[in-house]
Simulated scan of single mutants.
Amino acid sequence: MPLRRGRIGRPGLLGTMARTAVITGTATAPPVDLVGKLRQLSELHSAGALSDAEFAAAKKQLLG
């Protein structure tokens, strides 16, 4: 039985649509796990890896 390799030739409709969405800027970004990111920042801050100023700046950037 021969090994199947990837698709050869022109891309399928879905691939073309996805590339078009990215190029035109209509592709949506995956949702951000805001609570998870804030928890991670808090843990870094508690462990001393982030200063108060760094923690506040990172939190402000996440929250907008």
Rank of each mutant, 00 (worst) to 15 (best):
M1D: 11
M1P: 10
M1T: 13
M1C: 14
P2M: 00
P2K: 03
R4I: 06
R5F: 14
G6T: 02
G6L: 02
G6P: 07
R7A: 12
R7G: 09
I8R: 05
G9D: 08
G9C: 04
G9W: 04
R10D: 02
R10L: 03
P11C: 11
L14K: 14
L14Q: 15
M17R: 14
M17E: 09
M17S: 13
A18H: 06
R19G: 14
R19F: 05
T20P: 09
T20I: 10
A21P: 08
A21H: 04
I23F: 13
I23G: 12
I23W: 12
G25P: 02
G25L: 06
T26A: 11
T26K: 15
A27E: 15
A29Q: 10
A29V: 06
P30F: 08
P30L: 11
P30W: 07
V32M: 07
V32P: 06
V32R: 08
D33F: 07
D33V: 08
L34H: 07
V35A: 11
V35K: 09
G36K: 02
G36R: 03
K37C: 08
K37L: 10
K37S: 12
K37R: 12
L38K: 03
R39G: 02
R39W: 02
L41Q: 04
L41H: 05
L41P: 08
L41M: 00
S42D: 10
S42E: 05
E43F: 07
L44Q: 07
L44I: 00
H45M: 00
S46V: 05
S46W: 03
S46R: 11
S46H: 09
A47Q: 06
A47E: 05
G48H: 00
G48N: 00
A49G: 09
A49V: 03
L50D: 00
S51Q: 09
S51E: 06
D52G: 14
A53H: 06
A53F: 03
E54T: 03
E54H: 01
F55D: 06
A56E: 12
A56Y: 05
A56G: 11
A57F: 04
A58H: 05
A58V: 02
K59Q: 13
K59A: 15
K60N: 15
L62G: 10
L63P: 10
L63H: 08
G64E: 01
G64C: 01
G64K: 03
